[in-house]
Design a protein around this nucleic acid. Structure first.
Length: 276
DNA sequence: GTCTATGTTTGCGG
DNA sequence: TCCGCAAACATAGA
């Protein structure tokens, strides 16, 4: 389920596929709740005729900017996927929204668990302004991270998962970054030393860029798995050091990886490398 | 068949 | 402010 590297992979693939410049000629909604804030009828009426001027990412949102005005924001939540398909191919039962791009291809939103949402808005600020720092931008400085950690007194892992603080991290990459930085997920945010903050500041972009380079993490064989637009899997699952590797030896010290629960989320650590 | 876990987010109560 | 819990759903795996 998509985090920053998976969403960025989709954005890159949509751009490479020449979706920018296309005009949305048709829109059909098969599961009404997938459309956020407005009715499916309004969504279809308003999106028809829009030309896509740019496709980008903010946090875990895909952002489509339209030429004249407005934006389409897509949040994939747990199991959302996007794919490009020909109009002839049969709709699968989990494809909830189909946007026609001319008459040669379609952009389809597929979502087994139906938590994903599409927002069609004139002004995207009311959604995007809630998001915190972008961890791959140059504004993500060690001092900025130090400030946000010091400003709160929270368990480190739930804080890193909080999209209002840092945008784009999810369960996989937080576990990986904490292992990389040798910091325990239950540490309280305002008690990290400068050296620890610096280690975390280096680890976060490192694990995200590795995920991006590998075109995302696709775990297992389930229907909710991550696929990019041409139904291609990522290969970052082969590079994970701790996530879902309970019982395997820590790549650094060989102690067995343990699974604990932190903030109701499954969490993977090396007890030896990440001391409380 | 039954039970549990799941990569996300939001809203509620304490 | 912060934390825990439940809910929005469907599926896989034990």
């Amino acid at each position: 389920m998509p985090e920053l590297p998976e969403v960025q992979t989709l954005v890159n693939d949509l751009n490479a596929a020449g979706v920018v410049g296309e005009t949305i000629t048709t829109a059909r909604v098969f599961w009404p709740k997938t459309v956020a804030e407005i009715s499916p009828q309004t969504f279809c009426r308003r999106i028809r005729g829009k030309t896509i001027n740019a496709i980008r990412r903010r946090g875990k949102f895909l952002v489509f900017d339209f030429l004249d005005s407005g934006h389409l924001l897509i949040h994939l939540r747990m199991s959302g996927r996007l794919r490009l398909a020909s109009p002839e191919s049969k709709r699968s039962k989990h494809e909830h929204i189909i946007l026609g791009l001319g008459n040669s291809r379609q952009l389809r939103f597929h979502d087994t668990r139906k938590f994903g949402r599409l927002f069609l808005v004139d002004d995207s600020q009311h959604i995007l302004e809630k998001l915190g720092i972008e961890p791959l931008e140059s504004s993500f400085k060690a001092g900025v991270l130090a400030d946000v950690l010091a400003a709160r007194k929270r368990q480190l892992k739930p804080l890193l998962l909080d999209q209002a603080v840092i945008a784009g991290l999810g369960n996989i990459y937080v576990d990986e970054a904490l292992w990389e930085a040798k910091i325990h997920p239950l540490r309280v945010s305002n008690t990290l030393s400068n050296a620890e903050v610096n280690a975390l500041h280096r680890a976060i972009p490192r694990v995200l860029l590795r995920g991006l380079k590998n075109m995302g993490t696709s775990l297992g064989s389930g229907k909710a798995n991550f696929y990019s637009v041409a139904r291609r899997k990522g290969r970052n699952q082969d590079q994970l050091n701790v996530f879902r590797r309970t019982g395997s030896p820590c790549p650094r010290c060989q102690a067995p990886i343990e699974r604990i629960i932190v903030g109701q989320r499954s969490t993977h650590i090396c007890k030896n490398c990440q001391k409380l």
